[in-house]
Amino acid sequence: MSSETSEAPDKTPPKPARAEPPHYHGHRQRLRERFRSAGAAALGDYELLELVLFAAQPRRDMKPLAKALLKRFGSFAEVIHAPETLLREIDGIGEACIDQLKLIAAAATRVTRGELKHRTLLSSWNEVIDYCRTSMAFADKEQFRILFLDKRNQLISDEVQQTGTVDHTPVYPREVMKRALELSATAIILVHNHPSGDPTPSQADVRMTKSIVDIAGPLGITVHDHIIVGRNGHASLKGMKLM
């Protein structure tokens, strides 16, 4: 008989291996730290988009989606202003991401609009252009907008009068004047967008502008300009001596 004592097998279950955090967790923290220390100018468009989308998807690597959005639409501004129907065509995007993008677009418009409040618009022309481009340049349909001004050329109201198709918006000069009189405006700035991206005015744009000027004059209302905005810039009919 053996003198060795047999030991009972250890039935304690092994401890599970500690799960490694997903690789993008460290990436998120590094990206946030770069944003805090160096500012937005130090980040590429796709990195800024990642930061925006982090809130919508807290447990997912957002770099592939950010790059896919930029590949499809071209730039940060074009992504946040892209139509929701087109955004939904991007693989991997969800409603939370779309909501986050639209929130950023709305915030950008609200900020630029706020900068115009209580300003003399004719002395803040660059801000007027920035606001018009932020609000309309990336829309997929034509919009006709009017900035109504008081006698000090400060903004009374900013209104989209008509929304049309991809290349046409019906504009009714008498309706424009009716609204100006309702608001007691003494001047207006006409604005519309070209979804094609090219802001070059068409002959129809020139004719419509002249018809509004002709009606406005006898009513004591000045038409300061007609601005056309697009992804590729803007055009001023007054600057081009077309009105």
Rank of each mutant, 00 (worst) to 15 (best):
T163M: 06
T169V: 14
P195V: 04
I104K: 07
V111G: 03
G92M: 07
H194Q: 00
S2W: 07
E89K: 13
A40C: 05
R119E: 15
D205A: 13
Y46K: 11
N126H: 13
A187G: 12
V176R: 10
Q154H: 05
T163P: 00
E175P: 02
R32D: 08
I146L: 05
A66G: 06
E78H: 06
R18F: 09
A187H: 03
A68F: 00
E142N: 07
T186M: 10
F76Q: 14
A137K: 04
Y24C: 08
I212E: 10
M1E: 12
P173A: 01
Q143K: 14
L183C: 04
L181W: 04
R60Y: 08
V111C: 03
D99W: 03
I93M: 08
Q57L: 12
P14I: 14
L53R: 12
R32T: 05
F35K: 14
L122P: 03
R207H: 04
V229R: 04
A19M: 12
S37D: 14
G217V: 03
K241S: 12
S236W: 01
I146D: 04
A8E: 15
F144W: 00
G94H: 07
N153R: 13
M208W: 00
F138R: 06
L181M: 10
H192G: 06
A137V: 12
T165M: 05
I146M: 02
L69F: 02
L70A: 01
T209M: 03
R231L: 07
A38L: 12
P170S: 15
D205I: 06
S202P: 01
L147M: 14
D10E: 11
D225P: 00
A17I: 01
F35G: 08
G233S: 02
E175R: 14
F73W: 07
L149P: 01
D45V: 04
F54N: 13
V171E: 11
E95V: 09
R28A: 13
N153E: 10
T200W: 02
H27R: 15
Q203M: 06
R59V: 08
R34V: 10
A68R: 15
T209V: 01
S202N: 02
A56M: 08
T5E: 13
H81D: 15
E159C: 01
